[in-house]
């Protein structure tokens, strides 16, 4: 007997187009993701990857089409790791303060953080290997250390979905693979849906789905199917040589 389960997709993008100042940079994106999927968004520079992330985060509204969240997904369930920190060079903040701000969306109306929030922050800092530097100034850290802190902050904010925009750019190979296994653990163990923008070929092998963009949708489907397509072969060929 076959058990048919009707899964509501977590995210549904229908004919989405996004624009900057009236210039369309990404058009006709159609895909669906279910809870627990791991999507890797690939494409060249300027192909609209980061713009799509902004659309998914509701920082930018589509000029046409719509992005539908279901399965009880709200923006307060989303963790986000931006490409670089938007904060200025001289911003006085400790590592702990930065990561703690990731807990804000679970506070609802309450003004102050609780003990369990602080506990959670310590755990996430431990996970990314930054526990020892929690009282350190965020701006005085190296690029790689800052990225780990931002990952910890995203993990603190995540309940159902985590979006990562180039999480490993500028990291050395050892730290990169550490990052990937952390993200994979979050996906496998906690069942959190992952959407990751990446240039890196290694990222693909962890993913269940691939979305290839080139100012429009060039491919969307299972990773296993993608690597067999001419597009996938070319992408792997180009990036495999690096």
């Amino acid at each position: 007997m076959r058990v048919v389960t009707i899964l509501m997709s977590l995210i549904n993008c229908k004919d989405v187009s996004l624009a900057y100042d009236g210039n369309i940079v990404l058009s006709d994106v159609n895909f669906q993701l279910n809870s627990g999927d791991y999507l890797c968004v690939v494409g060249e520079n300027g192909s609209g990857k980061s713009t799509l992330i902004k659309g998914l985060l509701r920082l930018k509204s589509p000029v046409s089409g719509e992005i539908v969240f279901s399965d009880g997904l709200y923006s307060s369930h989303i963790g986000y790791m931006p490409q670089q920190s938007a904060a200025q060079r001289d911003f006085p903040a400790t590592v702990f303060e930065v990561v703690l701000s990731g807990r804000l969306n679970s506070r609802r109306g309450k003004p102050f953080y609780s003990k369990s929030d602080r506990q959670e922050v310590s755990e996430k800092l431990y996970d990314v290997g930054m526990e020892g530097l929690k009282k350190h100034s965020y701006q005085e850290l190296s690029g790689g250390q800052q990225q780990r802190v931002l990952l910890a902050r995203a993990l603190c904010a995540t309940k159902k979905l985590i979006l990562l925009d180039e999480p490993v750019s500028g990291l050395d190979p050892v730290v990169t693979s550490e990052m990937y296994s952390l993200i994979q653990e979050v996906n496998k163990k906690d069942g959190i849906t992952v959407i990751m923008v990446s240039h890196d070929l290694n990222a693909i092998k962890y993913s269940t789905h691939i979305l290839h963009l080139g100012n429009t949708q060039l491919f969307f489907g299972k990773t296993a199917e993608y690597v067999e397509t001419p597009l996938g072969k070319r992408f792997i060929g180009e990036n495999g040589n690096v």
Partner: peptide, 18 residues
């Protein structure tokens, strides 16, 4: 805590539901 969040990284605060 909210003032800190929107001062440090407004996009993150906005994206995660603040």
């Amino acid at each position: 805590n909210r003032i800190f969040a929107v001062t440090f990284d407004e996009n993150f605060a906005r994206a995660t539901g603040t």
